[in-house]
Amino acid sequence: MRDSLLPDPSPRGLARAIGAMFAHASVSSELAANGHSSQIGNLRSDGPLVLRKSNPKGPEPLTHRDPGVARVMLAAGTAGPLGGDGYRFDVHVGAGSTMVLTEASALLLLPGISGARSRFAINITVEAGATLVWWAEPIIAAQHCNHHHEVRISLAPSARMILREEMILGRHGETPGDFTSRLRITRDGAPLYDQQLEFGPKAAGFDGAAVLGAARATGSVIAVDPAWQDAPPQAQPYHPQAVLTPLAGPGVAIAAVAPDSLELRNLLTQGLQYLGPPWAI
């Protein structure tokens, strides 16, 4: 029964890869009885997806050092995902609550012995008046990996959100495997941001000057705030390899490409400063 909820690792109904691992974790936050602080409701770890209540680990946008927010950290219980694995992670930010979701380490995508694809599906709901800060660590696509990453976020009209995503094209000195991702954000059911990324041996032209060029790292910060409905931040091409752009709705995308993960992190953090407080860190 539970398997039917998981991303199907074999779309053509083929046998599961040998040793494939399936995991389904979830977390939710809710407003506490006092009406202003937030608390964790449900917290379910599963195998490689280990969830722990946490304390501030480093600077966070929006909620820096705020003791009243619900903090959760995602840690890796095992290596991977490896080819053939299927992970699912559900996040529910209840009405009026604030959740800060951080990660303990990078996610290293590794090939499986059969060449099968690994999948990671993340579904997030942010209810009315709620705020989600998801400060993720990089996703590293190791050589010969074969992975699909899918993040779907559904926001209430009055919800706020900021997330960071970083993709690294291979470990040190290696070329990346096949990686595809999709990040789709809807607000009140309408599309606000929908972008796929594809790189690796099967992605024609990804290393050309329109997509990633010679970059080994790419990422973005997406922020959504209903207060920007009437006055969105101005576009800001603040670096030859980075730009801050207002979306067609009350949101902002900061995008950067870089030679390595450190430069990428620096560029994204620099872009955040243009949003000013409380978004900057």
């Binding site: 789709r184 929908d194 990324l197 997509v211 091409p237 490409v257």
Partner: peptide, 18 residues
């Protein structure tokens, strides 16, 4: 329409704004 392709071109976006 929600399922239509959405591949991104980060460098093209960045260069267009410059």
């Amino acid at each position: 329409p929600a399922d239509l392709p959405a591949p991104s071109a980060p460098l093209a976006d960045i260069a267009a704004e410059h």
